[in-house]
């Protein structure tokens, strides 16, 4: 039983997988790569936070940070991983969530599609705010 102890030894469901289990199948490899997407997302926000701390209200410092080749290269890599995270999350939504409209189940394509529509709306709204002089 999970969490039950007997004679100082766990008698639950002991781990039987070898550590290289994920190398045996391309789907498992992609699963592990998806697990890694969180590392790049977290690193990007940590570096962004460091930029806020170091550059503060200084436009020249911000400009130098944003023009840095290292920042560009890392952002491109992070973007690929984050988009992979987004794509796999949105296409898996109908698997994770069961929804009904009345007595009829909502089709998987509708659920997944609504995620992409929400993503598109959020992207356009934030993009307009960041890239146009709407707020100065």
């Amino acid at each position: 039983m999970h969490g039950q102890q007997s004679a100082g030894r766990s008698v639950g469901y002991p781990w039987r997988q070898p550590s290289g289990w994920w190398l045996k199948n391309s789907h498992y490899i992609m699963y592990m790569i998806r697990e890694l997407t969180a590392v790049f997302a977290a690193l990007w926000v940590v570096i962004f936070l460091a930029q806020i701390a170091m550059n503060g209200r200084n436009v020249a410092k911000w400009s130098a940070s944003l023009a840095s080749p290292g920042w560009l290269v890392f952002s491109v890599i992070a973007f690929i991983f984050v988009m992979y995270h987004a794509w796999t999350a949105f296409t898996a939504t109908s698997t994770l969530m069961y929804m009904r409209m009345g007595k009829e189940p909502v089709p998987a394509g509708t659920i997944n599609g609504s995620m992409f529509v929400a993503w598109l709306v959020a992207t356009i709204v934030i993009g307009v705010i960041l890239l146009t002089p709407i707020f100065g």
Binding site: A38, W44, P69, L72
Partner: peptide
């Protein structure tokens, strides 16, 4: 990460560099 971060990375990280 899925909904908000991609456009921030694109606008703040990639577009100024390219």
């Amino acid at each position: 990460i899925g909904m908000l971060l991609p456009i921030h990375i694109l606008a703040q990280g990639i577009m100024p560099g390219v």
